[in-house]
């Protein structure tokens, strides 16, 4: 039982990270029908931006060591940086090819992904580097042997806060209403006087900021970052978005949490049923294929009409 609770905590934790990234995939897909393969790399850019900022403020503001202030600055700074990067990508790479066929836009997305990865490898090298600890991490004993660490609590609190914020933006603000309109029908929204280009750029900014937050939060929990860290995580987050029903916001969160939990359960219990823990990466895809075959539009895909 203790092990189960422990695995559940760890799984939900990884799942929350996947969910944050999946939200970006799903929002962009909802609006443009574009699989933004560069999104996983935005997650990496966020982590690197946080890394740079952490050293910058330690050197210039004297906020050395672990402090909540430093953590807040790093988190928000990384989110803003990634948002700007996301907007630039949309403006200079995706907007010119938006009207072309899906293959063309897909190749462009792959090109952007390669560009970011290779730029960071060329600039910073392919080796992993340690992310400075901005949190005096410690573990709290729950009942029995299950434990939760401060960084895990941080992941839960920040990701839930960000998801609520996103929910508020999408359903309670004018720009959110415009986003929903654009995802419903781009051309009609244009006729209704919505500046669709601005809305699309805003969507990229929003998604990228969430991915950057995921990057910084992950770096607090497992503090090694490298230029290729976004590939596998990004792919799994994308799978999470499809699993929940791509284009569907609650679906992305559900998909992320499901994949996170499934992965840790395979690591924890797979050996009992003859599945080696090294199969953890295959689990996400196996679940994905099953869901696609049984329910092609994803878990929440067709039941919820509003797609952003």
């Amino acid at each position: 039982m203790d092990t189960f609770v422990q695995q559940l905590i760890n799984g939900l934790n990884i799942g929350a990270i996947y969910a944050l990234i999946a939200l970006g995939y799903t929002m962009v897909y909802g609006i443009l029908r574009l699989i933004n393969f560069a999104h996983g790399d935005i997650y990496m850019v966020g982590a690197f931006a946080g890394y740079g900022l952490a050293y910058f403020i330690a050197a210039n503001l004297g906020l050395a060591g672990a402090s909540w202030g430093a953590l807040l600055i790093v988190l928000v700074g990384a989110m803003i940086t990634a948002a700007l990067v996301g907007m630039a990508i949309e403006r200079f790479a995706y907007r010119p090819v938006r009207k072309y066929s899906r293959m063309t836009t897909l190749i462009t997305a792959i090109g952007v992904s390669l560009l970011i990865e290779n730029l960071f490898v060329a600039r910073y090298g392919g080796m992993g580097r340690g992310f400075p600890q901005l949190l005096n991490d410690r573990t709290y004993q729950l009942f029995g042997n299950a434990a939760i660490s401060k960084s895990q609590i941080l992941i839960f609190v920040v990701s839930i806060a960000l998801m609520l914020l996103l929910q508020w933006i999408i359903y309670k603000t004018r720009v959110g209403t415009a986003m929903r309109a654009v995802s419903f029908n781009l051309n009609s929204s244009k006729l209704m006087g919505i500046n669709t280009d601005a809305i699309i750029t805003f969507t990229f900014a929003l998604g990228s900021a969430l991915a950057a937050a995921a990057g910084v939060l992950t770096a607090q929990y497992s503090p090694t970052i490298d230029p290729l860290m976004g590939i596998t995580t990004g792919l799994k987050a994308f799978v999470a978005a499809v699993l929940g029903g791509i284009g569907n916001i609650p679906g992305a969160v559900l998909g992320g949490l499901l994949i996170g939990v499934a992965e840790t359960m395979v690591v924890g219990y797979g050996a009992n049923v003859g599945i080696a823990s090294t199969y953890r990466d295959a689990v996400a895809f196996a679940i994905l294929i099953l869901v696609l075959l049984l329910r092609p539009s994803g878990l929440l895909g067709s039941t919820v009409q509003e797609k952003v």
């Binding site: 190749i107 792959i110 090109g111 390669l114 560009l115 730029l119």
Partner: peptide, 19 residues
């Protein structure tokens, strides 16, 4: 050192100019 960056940039450029 930036050859692969140039490669990726070329790829994007080709897609934009000759989809």
């Amino acid at each position: 050192n930036y050859r692969l960056v140039i490669y990726a940039a070329l790829l994007i450029l080709i897609m934009i100019t000759r989809p």
